[in-house]
Design a protein around this nucleic acid. Structure first.
Lengths: 184, 184, 184, 184
DNA sequence: AATGAATGAGGTTTCATTCAT
DNA sequence: GATGAATGAAACCTCATTCAT
């Protein structure tokens, strides 16, 4: 088996089990059993359980940053930009539901390092909204409304209620329009 | 020392340390050391570490339910009701910042039982908004907007940024007004 | 059982097994089995296997330093001083044969930290001889002769051949006299 | 690459790393990495890590035995013979400082088998001195003095202090003369 | 009620050795 | 001969819980 096959199997199993049971309830022995490799094999690919978790988190963080960079420079109205950004994010996170689950719910509880990763990405998203809404009075509050709404859709509708992506995207669009209507 | 003194000391220490380090990074030995009692004493008051955590969570859940019950029957316009409810919740959770932290961030990762407690309370809050907004088109989406906005203020402004309660309450009021403006 | 009973049992078992099998061939599980306590109990008393080893080594090192300090200030001829010192050392190390064994043969191989402890004590003994012989030409070489001879008696006659203490002390005295005879 | 090239590379790397870190702190993976061959290649040349160590030790043991055999039959006075032997040994062990280091400090701690090799060679050297000094009273003690002195020069001056060979040889000669002076 | 030493199951990690290619 | 990914036994260590005092 090729090196990256095994690594991928370990990552896939880890994502699955982390998202099902949480970081602390996931044992390395669970991951290797699911991946069908020996206990020692794990440590050929990852220095520790924490390092594996980090590499999972880094993947989603870098994807998020990529989307943010792309959306920052769009030549659109604020409303269009936010709609576009929301669709992109929902698309991405829908594709990696399990990792998203991990990112939104677990990262906070592991240790300071991961908490800081979460807060840092959060601030980047916040800055995107803030910049996009810079010509509005109450741009801080609007940022909080949009960020809260977006996270709610992810957390509750997409992940917990497991609604269909299209449905959630539609809800997002309707919500954004309602909020912008209040601004005119 | 009276029985309930020791119990309270254990709870206080637990709340402090759980909120600082998370459930899994908190050892029973940390809690008893902070409370100044012996290791064995812990088990005179709580069957297990999990049971102690549960009793902490139950306190905040019952307070939340109480507020919900009270607000449901208020004779106000929807906007007034939501403003009133928000102020109550922010007041409560500001008072128990540490427990709130635990409730919002940790409860999910421990096990299914705690996850269900979280989801259940969440649904109760959701139902309050849903009922309150029953005469509006898009009441589902509005519920998601309000719940997301509320949680965002708690999570980011009150807990992470540690803003002052009054400031956060004002932001909430402004936000709610903006959202309602879009509905007319 | 009192705390220090358990600690002593662990130290005694460790000394015995370390001296029989060496540091790396001694497992914590061997020590606790010999001491008749549970695996976890070990870690109530010692942070790690290395720390236990250190505390054993420190005991003999501090005894050695004590003897050195005492002998430095004796008002005797060099020959008398060296004879006196040798008897003291042989007495001490005979009493702690097992620890001596550990000190002489194992300490070097564990890691740099322990190697440095060994070298440092060695230099202290060396300085004692050097000072005592300061009025002799070839004091460096004499120091090497005395240190080598002393260690040889410990290593081979006392520990490997397990000769009786009195016999070894007599050999030391005869040897020292022969060496001093060559200096006149 | 020829068979024995690879074998030699492995031995050279092993000698280097064993002498730096000790037997137990040296991993097979360290040796193969240093030698620039694959992990599995190691086992084409050596049945085990222990067997490799043995083959290193056997080399120095057989050289020692060769010198002993050669020196036994020299037609010299005891003093000349001991001086000659000492120079030969110092020469040999200086050439293989790293292996000597291993031989003197590590061999003891690995297991009984290696301990016995050490003791056996030691007895052979002892017998050489004993035979050479057979006409002296106190030949046992003289043997201990010479062996101790010799080992001290190796251990401390040659290996730890890393003094120059010539200097150490000179010290040996001076020391031997002093000791013999005490015998007349 | 309170103590705190002791427990031991169960976790993470290491590394000499194997084996299919 | 050579490779290097994979193995898994066995080590160290943790910590919630128990129990004799």
């Amino acid at each position: 088996m090729s090196q990256s096959d095994t690594r991928d199997k370990l990552i896939n199993s880890a994502v699955k089990i982390f998202s099902e049971r949480g970081y602390f309830n996931t044992k390395v022995s669970d991951i290797v059993k699911d991946a069908g490799v020996a206990q020692g094999t794990f440590y050929l690919y990852f220095k520790s359980k924490e390092e594996l978790f980090l590499s999972i988190v880094e993947k989603i963080v870098s994807d998020l940053e990529r989307i943010l960079d792309h959306c920052k420079n769009l030549n659109m109205t604020p409303e269009e930009k936010i709609l576009y950004f929301g669709r992109e994010i929902l698309n991405l996170l829908n594709e990696y539901r399990e990792i998203t689950y991990i990112y939104l719910f677990q990262i906070f509880t592991i240790n300071e390092k991961f908490k800081n990763i979460y807060i840092s990405t959060n601030k980047n998203i916040m800055n995107f909204y803030f910049e996009t809404l810079k010509d509005y009075r109450n741009k801080e509050i609007l940022t909080d409304i949009f960020m809260g709404f977006g996270k709610r859709l992810l957390e509750f509708n997409l992940l917990i209620e497991k609604k269909d992506l299209n449905e959630v995207v539609e809800e997002f669009e309707t919500g954004v329009k309602i909020i912008f209507r209040g601004l005119k």
